[in-house]
């Protein structure tokens, strides 16, 4: 049963990963990637890394939607209604992809791993929790601090320097508005004062 599920999931994950770069619609691309990830998450659950798989799912739902929204924001043609190719160095990229697959696959097939070790038992999540908050607390904390630093850093990079007010104040930059007033003045105020 697990084997059947595994084959289905690996099929889904690889096929949808391939679809990511083969669809015109950016939103579809983002969600194909999500499907691929979800299949990987299921495989992780099958490997009894339950917590890890679920955290992956939890994270990527938001992540992929943000990705899709970014696509819609920045791309001129997010729905792929004007199909056009947006690739460069196509052949080299294919070669690199195939090469890395062959190389890593070879490691997987011909590599020798300590075998015969039993699967993890049912209380994996509890044991992972004990590990995280015990011996490996430093790693856990480092990951946390890294994420915090990332949040601050990302905000600092992305936000506009010298913002002129709250997000909800006005949609017009002060400079734009001033020049407008200097020129003609919005008719509403003109009327009001007249």
């Amino acid at each position: 049963m697990t084997d059947v599920l595994f084959w289905i999931m690996s099929g889904i994950s690889v096929l949808s990963a391939w679809r990511v770069f083969r669809t015109d619609s950016m939103v579809r691309a983002a969600y194909w990637l999500m499907v691929s990830f979800a299949a990987v998450a299921v495989i992780l659950v099958l490997l009894s890394a339950e917590f890890l798989g679920l955290v992956l799912l939890l994270m990527l739902a938001g992540e992929m939607t943000i990705m899709a929204v970014f696509m819609v924001m920045f791309m001129m043609n997010p729905a792929g209604l004007n199909p056009m190719t947006m690739v460069h160095q196509h052949r080299a990229a294919i070669a690199a992809g195939v090469l890395s697959f062959l190389g890593l696959g070879a490691v997987g097939v011909f590599g020798r791993f300590p075998a015969g070790v039993s699967f993890a038992t049912r209380d994996v999540t509890a044991r992972l929790g004990m590990e995280l908050l015990n011996d490996s607390m430093l790693i856990f904390q480092t990951a946390g601090v890294t994420l915090l630093a990332t949040m601050i850093g990302a905000l600092a990079i992305a936000s506009r320097r010298g913002r002129y007010g709250l997000a909800d104040e006005d949609s017009i930059e002060p400079a734009v508005e001033n020049s407008q007033n200097a020129g003609e003045g919005p008719p509403s105020t003109e009327k009001g004062s007249a």
């Binding site: 104040e169 949609s171 017009i172 919005p186 008719p187 509403s188 105020t189 009327k191 009001g192």
Partner: peptide
């Protein structure tokens, strides 16, 4: 109606 365009500009 003459007030309206200036009023709603910049609103959600």
């Amino acid at each position: 109606l003459t007030l309206l365009p200036g009023l709603v500009r910049g609103m959600e």
